[in-house]
Design a protein around this nucleic acid. Structure first.
Length: 219
DNA sequence: AGCTGATCATAT
DNA sequence: ATATGATCAGCT
């Protein structure tokens, strides 16, 4: 049982200690078996890192390191060392639509993030993948203005009942995509005539164009 | 090869 | 169903 970090400094020290280690080494420290692949274990790497760094939130809607206000995100890298996947931020509440960026869940979630790069070339077995150097990030003013513009455009459409017209092609850094168990999953929403409907749950995701900048900024 | 739309596991 | 953690896989 890893104790939660009491300060930002403690968290960064812990992250520094695991940099360079393999996922197998971390799993061994916690008596866990490494799955052969991630098809049925898509969240395994993220949960392993939560354990290793003493995150406390579990599945509660709170920052991973609540009292120091930091969110933990793993960042899978391809063989070129660039982000391989988009990053899920949060689900969109379609029955209580946010309208103010400053008060939005997206802004709060992204206010302070500890990114942990992880090797994720499919040719490298999961157990052998190495952990990279952590990056403690907050959006700079340029990044935040793009995020805000994307969020406002997308939320405007949602508030107009135009969710079904939104595609993942929209947004420079933020995009809207399904966030559901499958296409049969439903949540409450509103159509363009203001009528209540059931629709596919959606979430906000960060494009790799942003996470790639965050990675490169460090060098 | 990168991207979008679809999907997987677990806890509450 | 919604929150957490994400990656899969077919299409362009």
């Amino acid at each position: 049982m890893v104790t939660p970090p009491l300060s930002e400094k403690e968290l960064l020290e812990s992250a520094s200690e695991i940099a360079g280690m393999t996922l197998q080494q971390i799993a061994n420290q916690h008596g866990l078996a490494t799955p052969d692949n991630q098809l049925h274990h898509k969240g395994w790497v993220g949960q392993l890192l939560e354990l290793s760094l003493g995150a406390t939130a579990g599945s509660r809607p709170e920052p991973d390191f609540q009292h120091i206000g930091i969110e933990l995100k793993t960042l899978p890298l391809n063989r070129s060392g660039s982000p391989k996947e988009s990053t899920f931020v949060c689900a969109i509440n379609l029955s209580n639509i946010e309208s103010i960026w400053e008060e939005s869940l997206v802004k709060h979630k992204l206010s302070r993030v500890l990114w942990i790069p992880i090797e994720a070339d499919p040719e490298t077995p999961l157990a052998a993948r190495r952990i990279g150097s952590a990056i403690l990030w907050s959006p700079d003013s340029d990044q935040e203005s793009v995020l805000r513009k994307d969020w406002e455009e997308l939320m405007d459409m949602i508030s107009m009942g135009e969710l079904e017209q939104i595609t993942a092609h929209q947004g420079q850094y933020l995009q809207v995509r399904p966030k559901a168990a499958n296409t049969r999953a439903l949540t409450k929403g509103t159509d363009s005539e203001g009528k209540n409907i059931l629709t596919l749950p959606r979430g906000f995701y960060l494009r790799t164009s942003l996470t790639n900048h965050i990675l490169k900024q460090e060098y």
